[in-house]
Design a protein around this nucleic acid. Structure first.
Lengths: 113, 113
DNA sequence: TGACAACATGTCGTCAGGCGACATATCGTT
DNA sequence: AACGATATGTCGCCTGACGACATGTTGTCA
């Protein structure tokens, strides 16, 4: 069941966050999500359809996304306000983690050219 | 086995990255790692010991960290050059993902005061 | 027109990884 | 003496990611 997924500020998995970001500004259908994530990451992150539909079903159950059937029969997904908040919280969290990493000597950004 | 963990730019799990960052500038023993991660994340991320030692053993096997027994008997861990590179790569990756998220209207940073 | 790639949606089994629970032991404080 | 914090570690469960498979449509090119 969906349980307590939305009450914790639990770190989202990388894959879930990618999906949420891909839906941030526009609704997309499944295959378009696959391509959007790939494009967003310069081709480095490629979700398998198994991963994608697992994520979609969980996000739907949690109310983070909603779905709709378009006129051409495609199932399109969009972010709900809850999903937007989850993505926002995760972006904040990641930003803080990266900042912590960059604050160390060993992981500081290389001199920016 | 350790397989091909270092040749792919594979996204690290959140927990693994936290451990690597906690070891960036100074060596620590297990319990100190637990506390360091907690402190780094304002208490939001708490690794269980089960999680921690699983991660430690994998990182040791992969050559991302090395261990040493201190005079007081504590097992202390430190980052190897490989581990540093892994952490760096992950920091770069996360930075790009956050940038992509912030580039959307829905997830843009709130007006910075 | 036939073939093939890209588009599109989905299921299933496996496996790695995270996590809570448990097991010990020491040390400092009250 | 008792208790909580420090300290290290194992075990089993469950979630989630992933590759493989299944199926059908649309577009393009020879």
């Amino acid at each position: 069941m969906a349980r307590d997924r939305q009450d914790r500020p639990a770190p989202l998995t990388s894959a879930v966050f990618h999906v949420l970001v891909a839906l941030a500004d526009e609704e997309r259908h499944g295959y378009a999500l696959l391509k959007a994530v790939e494009a967003q990451t310069d081709g480095t992150v490629r979700l398998s359809t198994g991963t994608l539909y697992g994520i979609i079903n969980r996000l739907l159950a949690d109310g983070a996304i909603a779905d709709r059937t378009a006129r051409d029969g495609k199932r399109v997904y969009r972010l709900t306000p809850l999903g937007r908040e989850m993505a926002r919280a995760e972006a904040d969290r990641l930003e803080a983690v990266v900042a912590a990493a960059r604050a160390t000597r060993a992981l500081a950004r290389r001199s920016p050219a």
